[in-house]
Design a protein around this nucleic acid. Structure first.
Lengths: 238, 238
DNA sequence: AAGTGGTCTAGACCACTCT
DNA sequence: GAGTGGTCTAGACCACTTA
């Protein structure tokens, strides 16, 4: 898919580290060694190692070398731009998606505000709940601009919408902004989730932008309090 | 502090964008133009622009140019490695820190587990609550390895511990892992925070590592539900 | 066709760590 | 002093956008 040299190096090592092929704390070959074995220049190797470092796979120490970190395994859901499907597969948990709604509707005032469009303009509304180990713990409410997404069906919504957008529609997602907060549960939350009398839900608002900088999707992911977790890996500026 | 060329370029533009000197949507000069004006090579310029892009300041489009994004202003608290003090200053809100404890104590089983040390080993324990606009809404519990931090005083704890660590002790923080979850409030939470009968708190566990890959600080930041917010900016892989 | 960003190279010098 | 990662260069070719 991406035939770049740095990408190959990155993936080789990301994989080796993820599946334990290289244990935590181990030293990986030096940049010049890697350059030789891959027949690449050192700058290209450095690009790959920079990515590995950024994503928490390795740690580089001047004068010493690059070392495998212990965080890769614990990498969890929502960090970056991972879909529910990718996540639950990665975790190997039994999960199911219930599609409640897949319709074109006029945008409410709130939704229009989130998507920065006119109130009443048509948007796709997709409402799904996610069942993990028999309990409905996540409620996903997705809104798409119809200019970009002509057709959505419950079948597509039942699988990965991301897959459909990226591979079938060839929409290229570029970046996203996420906001996490905790809010009182709505009647809709109570109807579509197994809330067990919990009064609040964790709300993750996700604004997704395309390559051309246009906002085209707004997602509200509402999680049952006790089933929510978010993990973040951060490097000091550089 | 960092006299590198790419760093200068990065800071010049980060600043211009942050204070509105370049409006959102505007195009910044091309890489070759920037290379010329800064007397640098294009690769060096690209390094700076890569950082700007990663941090949500700009967006690069092949064949077109680099454009200023609209997200810079909203950048919020906990993303990255920002301290409470930096944050509240940035937000311009009235805040106060109450220091409850600054002591060397034997590590409990739980704390020892988090810091990966022997139970009963001595650690620094700092407990502070953060008052924002008259309400105590955050409880910070910090634990430091005494090998790295010899002395801590309530005065230091009342200001920025990060400042002290980085500038006085010259400890270089390298990366951190953050976990966010929601948990039932403890009696301690109820005693030191103004919880208003809320049953749960948002817990942010923060593991801080030094340049040499050693874990040296564990922080538990406990937030009142309704005052918690987290914003994240994520780019699709590349 | 001209301009843009994306990838890659071969080589240089530096600061740091280890022995 | 040998080895490591960090910065930087000058130039090349490519894919893409715009005119």
């Amino acid at each position: 898919m991406n035939a770049n040299i740095y990408w190959n190096i990155y993936n080789d090592y990301a994989e080796k580290i993820q599946n334990g092929g290289i244990p935590a704390g181990a030293k990986i070959p030096s940049e010049s060694e890697l350059a030789e074995t891959y027949g690449a220049s050192r700058e290209t190797v450095r690009k790959a190692l920079g990515l590995l470092s950024q994503n928490g796979y390795i740690h580089k120490v001047k004068g010493k070398g690059s070392f495998v970190l212990d965080l890769g395994r614990m990498k969890f859901p929502i960090t970056g731009l991972i879909s529910f499907k990718e996540m639950s597969e990665k975790m190997g948990r039994k999960s199911r998606t219930l599609v409640h709604k897949t319709e074109r509707v006029p945008a409410s005032r709130v939704i229009a505000g989130h998507l920065d469009i006119q109130q009443g303009a048509t948007v796709w509304e997709v409402i799904r709940s996610r069942e993990i180990e028999g309990e409905r713990v996540i409620l996903d409410k997705d809104y798409f601009l119809p200019e970009r997404v002509e057709l959505l069906t419950p079948e597509i919504a039942g699988n990965s919408i991301y897959d459909y957008l990226e591979h079938t529609l060839n929409l290229s997602i570029s970046y996203a902004k996420k906001e996490i907060s905790v809010e009182p549960a709505t009647p809709e939350d109570r109807a579509l989730l197994d809330l067990n009398n919990l009064s609040h839900v964790v709300v993750v608002r996700n604004y997704v932008y395309l390559e051309d900088t246009t906002l085209f999707q707004y997602t509200e992911s509402r999680h049952r309090l006790d089933k929510f977790q978010f993990v973040d890996f951060a490097r000091r500026v550089r």
